[in-house]
């Protein structure tokens, strides 16, 4: 436990002493803020229209602002995750510091968990900025907080899975750019797999759609905690970290 914490602290620190953390936070906040502004603008316009027609429709902040925003956040996340994970192992391998970690009395799994948790924390910090936007909704409106909390849980679970994949890919190369690009490709693929379900209902299409990370976010976005989807994300996290551990082991046999 202590070792995980030591690695976690070191990793998180190295995010925040380099410009990368601030770049990620700024870009994420900016893009999410833009979506928020748009969603709110649309919501206000709809409200005015329905009033002008003289027959006010029931309007719901959760349904019409929070839900689309959360699924937006889950998609933007795909683009940012490679930037969080690409250096985790690639940089240590390039600079040779991996030899220090591996020859210290620390288990591989502690190194991996420390790094992965640091990446997840970094992503969590980015999400904090989105919470700032939602805070306005609570100040001036009256949305339900529970679906929002479940949505955040979903975002974290989804990111956890993708970050685990990114961590694994980072162990495969010494080059951060390659790690980043490969992770981005995989993230994108896991997103668009779902599209086949639009025109195909065969078994293989269902399997592909099931593998897509986006499909499983839908329930969280609605504010429903579906165990099926939670288990999917936990499985992805487990597999990602498991392959990372295998890869680290093979690194030793080969290098």
């Amino acid at each position: 436990m202590r070792n995980i914490w030591i690695i976690w602290r070191k990793e998180l620190r190295s995010y925040f002493v380099s410009p990368i953390a601030y770049l990620l936070l700024t870009m994420f906040a900016l893009i999410f803020g833009f979506f928020f502004w748009n969603a709110l603008g649309y919501f206000v316009m709809m409200g005015m229209e329905s009033q002008m027609r003289g027959q006010p429709m029931p309007m719901n902040l959760n349904e019409e602002v929070i839900r689309p925003l959360l699924s937006n956040a889950s998609v933007i996340g795909l683009f940012f995750i490679p930037m969080i994970t690409m250096r985790l192992f690639a940089e240590e391998k390039r600079s040779g510091t991996i030899e220090l970690l591996v020859t210290s009395p620390v288990r591989d799994i502690e190194i991996i968990l420390g790094k992965w948790l640091a990446a997840l924390t970094m992503y969590g910090c980015m999400l904090l900025f989105t919470a700032l936007n939602f805070a306005f909704l609570f100040k001036y409106g009256n949305p339900d907080w529970k679906p929002l909390a479940i949505g955040y849980l979903g975002l974290l679970l989804q990111a956890g899975g993708l970050l685990a994949i990114g961590t694994f890919i980072s162990t495969l190369t010494k080059n951060q750019i390659i790690a980043g690009a490969a992770t981005f490709g995989v993230c994108l693929l896991l997103w668009i797999l779902e599209w086949v379900s639009g025109y195909e209902t065969a078994a293989w299409a269902q399997v592909l759609a099931y593998m897509s990370v986006i499909t499983h976010f839908e329930s969280f976005g609605k504010g429903v905690l579906d165990m099926k989807d939670a288990i999917y994300y936990l499985t992805v996290i487990f597999l990602g970290l498991f392959f990372t551990a295998r890869s680290m082991e093979s690194l030793r046999w080969r290098s």
């Binding site: 070191k10 190295s14 002493v17 380099s18 600079s95 040779g96 510091t97 991996i98 030899e99 220090l100 020859t103 210290s104 009395p105 620390v106």
Partner: peptide, 16 residues
Amino acid sequence: KKRIGYLPESPPLYPE
């Protein structure tokens, strides 16, 4: 590992 100190060929330093 607890009883060994190791200096690899290039010192394993974190530049930051």
